[in-house]
Amino acid sequence: MSAVTSTAMTDDKPLLSVEHLTMRFGGLVANNDVSFVARAGEITALIGPNGAGKTTLFNCVTGFYTPTVGRLTLRHSDGKEFLLERMPGYRIAQQAGVARTFQNIRLFGGMSVLENLIVAQHNKLMRASGFAIAGLLGLPTYRAAENEALELAKYWLDRVKLTEFADWEAGNLPYGAQRRLEIARAMCTEPVLLCLDEPAAGLNPRESGDLAEILTFIRDARNPNGRQTGVLLIEHDMSVVMRISDHVVVLDYGRKISDGDPNSVKNDPAVIRAYLGEDEDADLPPEIAADLSVSAPAAQKGA
């Protein structure tokens, strides 16, 4: 297991630390004593073969599951700490500022694109509307808050290149656009940690290129109070992972088997074994071999 050799631009306290996380479903151990950290202003990729427990881990971080054992700490830049394993799901999004997307896209398909982004700002607007009372009376405070929400929505629409589709029903968007909309929707909650579950799945090379651009933008951007967003990413598309991530965590059978920067992980024998099985000389299907040997030139081809 190699040490964390990230570009260490943040202070020493990581944004998210996962400690000794174990999640059991009856007899099945989906995550077994996993520990790692994710930092603000970095993209942390979570990779591993199918069934390695990546999505389960995600669901623990975002509060859809309560872990059997372990501690999940989220630290804001102002020093506030949240113990995620003790919070119900919606509070993690509402208070701790963790937003997520889903492996099989979950948009509000019958609502318009813009409405999807406004719904994401629910809690802010709910307070501004005085829990609907001020809103029902049409008080100006609410109107101001709604305009502000509209501005943020427009900003992210522009970012993900969906402005012209703003009034479409979200369910009618093409697939790639739906993926981008889901990310924009998550960003409209103004999160400190953005969790993406296979955002490049089903995208063509050009679309994954756009995606990589959006993700690096999210990582590098600073919001008005100078805070940076951390990105936690599950991804199968190695070209995307190797190109944009700052830090890679590899899971296999629920355990962490490697952790480090993309290059060191790529050459870690444990990782190669996990992906290829024990017998390294076996004939590999060419596409897997290509995925594994992805390096800088291959990544550029993908863009």
Partner: peptide
């Protein structure tokens, strides 16, 4: 209003709504 939009969002997808802090 946000309350009504949250209702419609819940009708469309409860899990996504929860992930947005509703």
């Amino acid at each position: 209003l946000p309350l009504g939009r949250a209702w419609e969002a819940l009708r469309e997808d409860e899990i996504a709504s929860a992930s947005l802090g509703i």
